Simulated assay, not measured.
Amino acid sequence: MSNPPAHTPGLLAFAAKAPLGEIFDLTRLDDSLFQGRSRGEVSTRTFGGEVLGQAIIAAGSTIPQGRDLHSAQAYYLLPGDTSLPVTYQVQRSRDGGSFTTRVVSAIQRDRPIFTVTCSFQRRPDSGGMTHQVPVMDAPDPETLPDPLVAYAQDDAAVEWVRFLLDHQPVDLRFPEPPTRVRLARGEPAGPRQRAWFRGHQPIGSTRVAHAAGLAYFSDLLLLSSALGPHGRALGDADVQFATIDHGIWYHAPLDPGEWFLYDMEGYWTGDDRAMCRGLIFDRHGTLCASTLQEGLLRRKREIPS
């Protein structure tokens, strides 16, 4: 799921901002059952990255030591409700010599709203074959202005950036104006956008906490990259959107409390769906993760008056 500005329909995709360490602080009910706390008293639609991150924490709490998450494949079944706790049921699917698999179901009102398969790999004793094709070519985040400063003369852009920063525990820098800013200026926008991300507070010290944090942030902005060629933005009154499924593959350790570049592309739309992919680099250019997301993306048949 992505992020509409505060004045548009769909704004309720996010609850109030909270540190990721607090968001990921689950209550363990029994050996394979966990509960995530509510984000507020008002009923709003749960942010997809939050449910994914919490599910990864639940899965990681049931695996042997020395194994790291290498992939997570998630499906969003029903909208979550931020006024209710979420129960995470972990199914211990496989404990092999090299790989451990867990399936996690997120449950509200006795119904599954989300499911994810998480695969963990035993850390190799020594390095094997390695290569990386994608190359990062972006200015360092410290050389880029705060977006509130960069877009200070653009009221719509400032409103959108403030909404993001007020509702998400993240710092942002944009190498180029993102899709929403280009469209608000009346400029053409392609299917690609890039952003430097950094959690505004430390996100724990364990690898599973870092993997959960990266999964959380990987849901921000990604689907919106598919709308640039169509001159629309998430949150427009005539646009309906929702995440259908989301995949993330981990290639190298990354602390999302440090700057990382998210290079996003909406490479296909059709049949009321969109496919988006992303590459996540650390500041040294190492490819640390890849993402794929499919979303419902269509023009509403009727616009309420």
Rank of each mutant, 00 (worst) to 15 (best):
L279T: 04
L254N: 03
P188E: 01
T269C: 12
V161R: 00
G231R: 06
P253A: 14
W249D: 12
D272H: 13
F174G: 06
L292E: 13
G186F: 05
L214Y: 09
R232I: 11
A209W: 02
D245V: 08
V208Q: 11
W259R: 09
L172F: 13
Q168L: 13
E159Q: 12
A252Q: 14
R173I: 02
S205F: 10
R232S: 13
L234I: 15
G295C: 07
R162F: 03
G285F: 02
M275V: 15
A157V: 02
R182K: 13
M264A: 08
F197G: 01
G278I: 00
Y262R: 03
G231K: 06
S218H: 09
D271T: 15
A209P: 00
R298I: 03
L220G: 01
M264N: 02
D171E: 15
W196H: 11
A289V: 04
C276N: 15
E258V: 06
A252H: 14
L221M: 08
I248F: 03
Y250H: 13
L172G: 03
H167Y: 06
P253D: 13
R162K: 11
I303V: 15
M275T: 10
H230Q: 06
H210D: 00
P304T: 14
Q193I: 08
Q240G: 15
R180I: 12
E258M: 04
L222A: 03
L296K: 03
G266N: 07
F174Q: 01
Q293N: 01
A215I: 09
A215H: 00
A157Y: 01
L227R: 11
W160F: 14
W268K: 10
L220D: 07
V181S: 04
H167C: 07
F241R: 07
H284F: 13
L165V: 06
P169L: 10
S290K: 08
M275L: 15
D238H: 10
D245G: 15
R273W: 08
R192V: 01
Y250V: 05
